[in-house]
Design a protein around this nucleic acid. Structure first.
Length: 283
DNA sequence: AACCAGGTAATCG
DNA sequence: CGATTACCTGGT
């Protein structure tokens, strides 16, 4: 997997035993060294350090202390495929979790590479080159196929995955990732430069850019602000006064520094589990 | 059937 | 500049 070959990793931990042992099962056609597996798993699940450093930080801020008991053991999860993360993040904008997950699953099933394992069939996310060539809508696909039958019968096009107007963003981003931008290089840039760079992709605003950098490239200083984080910051730090996303983002980055990503994750989960979210619902 | 949620891009003053 | 609005889809 270090070299890009497919590999399946199953991870199990007894429910309720967050400090208990992790069982890791690996499947691959090729031989893989134990150390490589450990390295990759630990990178994906951010296991390189225990969370004490994060918890010490949360403890030091009175507004954040309550999040700990609701989130203990929760970790940032790093995406394995940067391009999948970029397209997924674009797809998530102005969209529901359920819907954009469904869209991404369909994209993988339709244009990803297929793999078998004992757990069933898997699909990788298609490469930029593949995705940029996918027809946008049923009419385009029909013409490509010679124009036979009803357009609505064609389902090998991006719009059929329910991505809506994000379709053109995704295709153009795929084209740029293939022809103009080295998306692997983003990981070596510093945060500010990487933020400017990913913001060049259509459909990528501040929130999506921060999601890409946080979940796709492990940049922990990113603080993605969606409506919920905006409301939570307003409630916890500004006595409920409305704080607009750009201001909430700057505030979060200054206040939380290299822990901003973890604070965002913990605040969101805390608000959801504690009932704070219900009380903040609309306006 | 009208209305809602959800970030970005375009447009307006 | 800041403020407003169109955009698509699946849900009520």
């Amino acid at each position: 997997m270090i070299h890009g070959e497919p590999c399946f990793i199953g991870i199990h931990q007894e429910p309720g035993d967050l400090d208990g042992p992790l069982t890791i099962r690996v499947e691959s056609k090729n031989e893989i060294k134990d150390d490589e597996i450990r390295l990759k798993v630990s990178e994906i699940f951010d296991l390189k350090d225990d969370l004490m450093e994060v918890y010490n930080f949360l403890e030091s801020k009175s507004e954040l202390q309550p999040t700990i008991e609701f989130c203990r053991g929760l970790r940032l999860f790093k995406a394995q495929d940067p391009f999948e993360c970029i397209i997924s993040s674009i797809c998530s904008a102005n969209n529901s979790i359920k819907r954009w997950n469904k869209s991404i699953r369909q994209i993988k099933e339709k244009w990803g590479e297929e793999f078998m394992s004992s757990e069933g069939v898997f699909h990788s996310f298609p490469s930029p080159e593949i995705l940029m060539q996918v027809p946008e809508h049923d009419m385009e696909e029909m013409e490509l196929c010679g124009g036979a039958g009803e357009a609505s019968n064609y389902t090998s096009n991006l719009k059929s995955c329910g991505v809506g107007y994000r379709c053109s963003y995704m295709k153009e981003t795929a084209r740029m990732a293939h022809e103009e931008v080295d998306i692997l290089k983003l990981g070596d840039m510093d945060y500010e430069d990487a933020f400017k760079e990913v913001s060049k992709f259509p459909g990528v605003g501040p929130k999506v850019a921060d999601c890409i950098l946080l979940y796709g490239y492990g940049m922990g200083q990113a603080f993605p602000v969606d409506v919920w984080i905006g409301r939570i910051i307003s409630a916890l730090y500004f006595q409920g006064e409305e704080i607009k996303p750009p201001k909430a983002r700057i505030f979060g980055m200054k206040e939380f520094e290299e822990y901003a990503g973890y604070v965002q994750l913990y605040l969101f989960h805390y608000a959801r589990k504690s009932g704070l979210m219900e009380s903040l619902r609309k306006k």
